[in-house]
Amino acid sequence: MYIEQGYKGKLGAWNYFVIPGLFILLMIFNYISTKIMVEESGESVELMMSRFIDMMGKNIFLVINLLVFVVGLLVIFFWVKFVHQQSLTNFTTSRKKIDWKRIFTMFFLWGTYSTITILLAVYVAPDNFELQFNWTKFLPLLIISLLMFPFQTSFEEYLFRGQLLQGLGIVTKSRAVSWIVTSILFGVMHAANPEVEKLGPIIMIFYIGTGLVLGAMTLLDEGLELALGFHAANNILAALLMTSTWTAIQTDSVYLDTSVVPEFGIMDTLPIFIGYPILLIILGKIYKWKDWKEKLFGRVMSKEEFFALEENRIEVDQFQNY
C-alpha cells in the first residue's frame, strides 16, 4: 500500500503537486528558452552543448548539470519532512524501514545487464565504437558519477514515483491513473533531450516505457527501493561505459559511440515491450509479488479505510509480540 502512505502527513492533497508543479514549469521554461536560443543562434542543441563543454570541460559541465538535481532532491526532502510532515521512510516505502538490500540488489542486477549489453554491442559492431579509456579522466568521472548521479536519479524517482504517484493516487483513488499519468509525465520530461531531436519522437516510447516499468516496480513491490536501484544503475553505467557527441550526458567514458545516428524504429522498441515485462516477471519471482491486477489497476483506499487497517495491523503485531 505504497500510495496510501501519503495519508501519513499533516496537509491536504494539494501539497503533493507544489514541487512537481514548480519543476514542470521550470522544464517548460527551459524547453522554450532552448528553442529560442536555437532559433536565434542558428545552432543545433548538439552544437550548443559542444560549445559549452569546450568552455568548461566535460566533468565541470556534468557537475553543473547534476547540481540542479542535488538541490531539487534536498528541496523535496525538506518539503516532505517539515511541510507535509511525512517521514522519509513512509515517503520511500510501505515497509517499516527502507530496504537497502533491495536497492543494492536491483543496482547490481540492472548494472550487470547494462554492462553486458554495452560490451555485446561493442563486440558485434566494433567499428561503431572508439575506445577512449584514460585513467586520469575516468577516475574523476567515476567519483562524480558515484557521488552525484544517485541525487539525480533519486530526485526523479521521489518526484514522479513518490510525490506525484502518491498524490494522484490519493486524489483520483485509482492506481492505474496515477501509474499511467506519472509515466507519461516522466517521458515528457525528457522531450528536450538532444536524443529526441536526433532519433525522432518515437524514442518517447522508450522514456514512457521506462516510466511505466519503474511505476510498476513501485506499485507491485509497495516501495521505491527497486526503482531507485534500477535508475541509479542505468544512469551511472551509461555515463561510465558509453557516450556519444549527441546525447544529453557527455562524459569521458570507456567507449565513444561514433556510429551514424539512425532513426529510432519500431524494432528498437522490442526491448521495452519484451525486455521490461521479463524483468518484472523475474522480480516478481524473487520478491513473491501477488495480486498484480489489484496493485496496478485497483482502487486506492480512503484515508479512513487505510488507518483502520493500520490500527488493526498494530493490534495484531502487539498480540503476536505478547
Rank of each mutant, 00 (worst) to 15 (best):
D268H: 14
N134K: 01
T112L: 02
V38I: 14
V254A: 00
D127N: 09
Y207V: 09
F91Y: 15
Q320F: 08
G21D: 14
T93Y: 09
N128Y: 13
Y255D: 00
Q85E: 13
T243I: 10
V188R: 02
Y16H: 07
F307P: 14
N15G: 09
D268E: 09
L224T: 13
V261W: 04
K96Q: 12
I286E: 00
F108L: 11
F61E: 02
D127I: 01
M189V: 10
A308S: 15
S244W: 04
A121E: 01
L228R: 02
L131Q: 10
L159N: 04
N15S: 13
N235F: 08
T117I: 08
F52H: 13
L228Q: 06
S253F: 06
E195N: 10
E195K: 04
L212I: 03
E222V: 03
R313C: 10
A191T: 09
K295R: 06
N15I: 14
I36D: 07
W246C: 06
A308Q: 15
N134Q: 11
T34L: 15
T136E: 10
T269A: 13
T93R: 02
E294F: 05
W110T: 15
Y287Q: 07
Y322F: 13
I205G: 04
A233R: 04
G162N: 11
I202G: 06
M106I: 05
F17E: 08
R313S: 13
T269Q: 14
L220T: 00
E157R: 07
L26P: 10
T245C: 05
G265R: 06
V196A: 03
